[in-house]
């Protein structure tokens, strides 16, 4: 089987798994709270398995933590959909959860001596707090109807994949990011169904997994702090729809503005990373 066909099959399988569970959640209504994050988790587990193989537990290789993050962060996805009266449980739970989830992979870089203890602690705290902010501020997007949110999530995957491929020089992390975006694109099709929403848990979990992949690329591959910061800011663009000023605008404007930021800024970043990659030498390397 060719590499391209194999990659397409991987993305297709993962998207199908997520799509079936999201559809089931939409059909069963009340179960959507549980099934939507489960769809994200199952899809990511499937695509990791196809791309990277079976991971160890506990992982010897710290980059395998991205697989376990998809499972261990699932309760956070479920918690995100908790009723408004208990939302503080989600907010504090997400904070503790992200701190707990980001410590094990990056502790390894302190052990190997690549990061000093002080730098390692600073990175872990920054990653956890960054993911927490992104998840808690963006989760309400899951209640939005229409194709906007899943389309922006999918585009984020594409931009992320591009930067990880050219900037971080990690094909597997780029492939994981890109296929996670493909999973998000299933939501675009499903959101054509009347009353379909991605759900707060699914949105929070997708964004957490993006953060897990991007921070892994910073720690273990060649993604720079600047590139990570750019990806992080771009991850907030779908949430622009929630701003009161934009809420008063037409659906077209609410969709077009974040998309324009994502495509123009993200596309420019991928283009710059590609140019820097090509400028490293005349000895072109195509993976």
């Amino acid at each position: 089987m060719s590499v391209v066909l194999s990659s397409a099959l991987t993305a297709g399988l993962a998207a199908l798994a997520a799509g079936v569970l999201w559809l089931l959640g939409w059909w069963l209504r009340r179960a959507h709270l549980w099934l939507a994050p489960l769809g994200v988790s199952l899809a990511f587990v499937l695509l990791y398995w196809r791309i990277q193989g079976r991971p160890d537990f506990p992982p010897i290789d710290a980059t395998q933590w991205v697989f376990w993050h998809a499972l261990f962060a699932l309760p956070l996805g479920w918690l995100a959909g908790i009723g408004a009266a208990y939302r503080w449980v989600w907010v504090w739970g997400a904070l503790l959860g992200t701190l707990w989830l980001f410590a094990p992979p990056f502790y390894n870089l302190m052990q190997s001596g690549f990061w000093s203890n002080a730098a390692g602690v600073a990175y872990i705290l920054s990653f956890a707090l960054g993911a927490w902010l992104l998840m808690t501020l963006s989760a309400p997007l899951g209640d939005e109807r229409g194709t906007g949110t899943p389309f922006l999530m999918a585009t984020l995957g594409g931009v992320g994949a591009g930067l990880l491929f050219y900037g971080a020089k990690s094909a597997s992390l780029a492939q994981l990011t890109g296929t996670l975006g493909a999973v998000g694109s299933v939501g675009v099709v499903l959101s054509l169904l009347r009353g379909f929403t991605l759900g707060r848990g699914a949105v929070a979990l997708i964004l957490f997994l993006y953060m897990s992949l991007w921070t892994t690329a910073l720690g273990f591959a060649n993604l720079t702090v600047g590139q990570l910061a750019l990806l992080y800011l771009l991850a907030f663009t779908p949430a622009l729809q929630l701003l009161p000023a934009l809420k008063r605008q037409s659906p077209q404007v609410r969709f077009a503005l974040p998309l324009a930021v994502l495509v123009i800024v993200g596309g420019a970043a991928v283009g710059l990373a590609y140019n820097a990659y090509m400028a490293q030498g005349s000895d072109h390397y195509s993976y």
């Binding site: 390894n108 273990f220 591959a221 490293q280």
Partner: peptide, 22 residues
Amino acid sequence: TGNSQRDDHLRNPDFFNARQFP
């Protein structure tokens, strides 16, 4: 390997994961 881009790729998690396993 005589190609700096390929060497960077080899050091990364796709291959040796040299930051964790130097």
